[in-house]
Simulated assay, not measured.
Amino acid sequence: MNISIIVLMSFLSFNTLASVFVEKNSVDNIGVIHSVKFENDQSITVYLPDGYIENNYRYPVMYVVDGEKYFLHSIAYQKTLISESKTPPFIVVGINTKNIKRRELLGAKSAELIATFQNQIIPYIDKNYRTHDIRMYFGWEMGGGFALELFAKQPTLFDAYFLASSTNFTQERLDSVNNLLKSKAPTGEFFYYTLGSVESWSLDPHKALSEILTYATRKELNWEFKISASDDHYTTPFDTFNKGLSLYFHDYAPIRFYSLNEFEVFGGMPALKAHYKKRGEHYKISTDIHDETKHYLLNQAINENNFAFFKQYVMEFDGFIESFNYSSGFIVKVGRFYSRNNDLDAAISLYRSELLKHPSNVELQEEMIKLSKR
């Protein structure tokens, strides 16, 4: 059972801290959640991913407008896929709008909300939690239109934008984005936005944004616009989170090569090391080649009966087979591969190493007996 800490912070005004008090509750199967309350019932809710308390890592942050509706979407995404290394864990900050004048805040008072993001919410999150410099934004409906203004006025505040069924893509906001991109000023790096095909009222402004992004001079700005025949105004957020995040984190999952030729075409070991170095620096994690990638390469060499490649990368990944938590079945597979290629010393050494860890393993004992009779 995880412990959630709810921190309620009341403000004398929208920008002035008044008081703090702490209340502790228990939450099963979700994680640590903090709530920070502002005047006029405005509040943010903060999710800390599994393992946050036990380590010193720094995490990306996803800011979710209309958090009372969509806060759990990005939590479900990462809790489902973290164990498969498909996504990094990340902090989620829900910007709750339930009991405030939402349309006014995202429209006429948008400048005030932008200032609050820049001067209050983000500094608070960065000060009180272990964050690194990847910031993501999600907005639905008016939250999507607001995002264009946010992007144009504060182009480096967020790195990625995920927008669903957006409204209020006004000409002024579109022109501001267009002018920003033509200026070649530094900006965020990624846009993913969706629209249901039934939302005809928003189609033209979305196409206009696509034209702006298509002809943007900043070629490193990646984006995708998806029109869905199966979604409507209320279901597009599911795709926006799932497909959008998978595209944004496409370089995070361990690489798997399904043939040694595919690995060579990729660029071999120099390219692989360069990829993991860039990945590690971007996500603030290890720059080493992922263990799963090492396993895939070694296993593929066995499957293709390429002993020279196998031996080369056993040396490259020195000690990996012995230190990885392999089943005895895979160790036997490796040992028999050594034996078929007349490297009995390597097979015996591997079995001995495993038997030191698992002295009662009958399968390994039988393999050792077979080798002793050769």
Score class of each variant (00 low, 15 high):
Trp223Met: 03
Tyr313Ser: 11
Ser19Gln: 14
Glu220Lys: 06
Tyr313Met: 08
Phe225Ala: 11
Ser259Arg: 10
Val198His: 09
Glu23Asn: 13
Thr97His: 01
Thr287Phe: 06
Phe309Ser: 11
Val314Asn: 05
Tyr63Ile: 05
Ser328Thr: 06
Tyr137Gly: 06
Glu262His: 10
Glu172His: 10
Lys357Thr: 04
Glu54Arg: 06
Val22Phe: 15
Lys98Leu: 13
Val22Pro: 11
Asp231Val: 03
Thr214Ser: 09
Asn128Ile: 07
Thr235Gly: 03
Glu54Tyr: 15
Thr167Val: 13
Thr116Pro: 03
Gln300Gly: 08
Gln300Pro: 03
Asn119Ala: 10
Leu180Ala: 04
Lys277Pro: 02
Glu112Ala: 14
Gly267Glu: 10
Tyr252Cys: 02
Thr16Phe: 09
Tyr161Trp: 10
Ala308Phe: 14
Glu264Gly: 08
His295Ser: 03
Leu181Val: 02
Ile285Lys: 00
Lys182Gly: 07
Ile227Trp: 02
Lys98Asp: 15
Asp231Met: 08
Asp251Glu: 12
Thr287Cys: 14
Phe266Ile: 05
Leu364Phe: 01
Tyr70Lys: 01
Gln78Gly: 06
Leu356Cys: 05
Tyr77Phe: 15
Lys184Met: 09
Phe309Lys: 08
Met368Tyr: 00
Leu221Gln: 04
Asn325Val: 09
Tyr234Ala: 13
Phe337Ala: 09
Phe307Gln: 06
Ser165Pro: 02
Leu221Met: 13
Ile91Tyr: 08
Ala185Asp: 11
Lys357Asp: 12
Ile122Cys: 13
Ala301Gln: 02
Lys109Arg: 10
Ala164Tyr: 02
Leu81His: 06
Lys273Thr: 12
Ile212Lys: 02
Phe320Ile: 05
Glu23Leu: 11
Thr214Glu: 12
Val27Leu: 14
Asp204Lys: 10
Ala346Pro: 03
Phe151Ile: 02
Leu221Ile: 14
His250Val: 04
Asp291Gly: 11
Gly319Arg: 07
Pro155Thr: 03
Arg256Asp: 12
Ala216Cys: 12
Ile369Glu: 11
Phe307Asn: 02
Ser200Asn: 09
Asp159Glu: 13
Val36Ile: 14
Glu189Arg: 08
Met368Cys: 03
Ser183Gly: 12
Phe309Cys: 02
Tyr47Phe: 14
Val27Ile: 14
Ala185Tyr: 05
Phe249Trp: 01
Leu247Tyr: 11
Val20Lys: 12
Asp291Phe: 06
Asp232Met: 07
Tyr70Thr: 03
Ile75Leu: 06
Ile285Ser: 02
Ser210Thr: 09
Ser200Ile: 12
Val20Ser: 15
Ile33Cys: 14
Ile53Lys: 10
Ala347His: 00
Ile121Leu: 13
Tyr70Cys: 01
Leu203Asp: 11
Glu39Trp: 12
Ser327Leu: 05
Ser200Ala: 13
Phe241Met: 06
Phe138Trp: 11
Leu81Met: 12
Tyr258Arg: 07
Pro49Trp: 12
Phe190Gly: 00
Tyr63Asn: 07
Lys207Val: 07
Glu172Gly: 14
Phe307Ser: 04
Ser13Pro: 09
His34Asn: 15
Arg374Gly: 07
Arg102Gly: 00
Glu363Thr: 05
Asp159Ser: 09
Ser328Asn: 06
Phe238Glu: 07
Glu367Met: 04
Ile122Asn: 07
Asn178Cys: 07
Gly94Tyr: 04
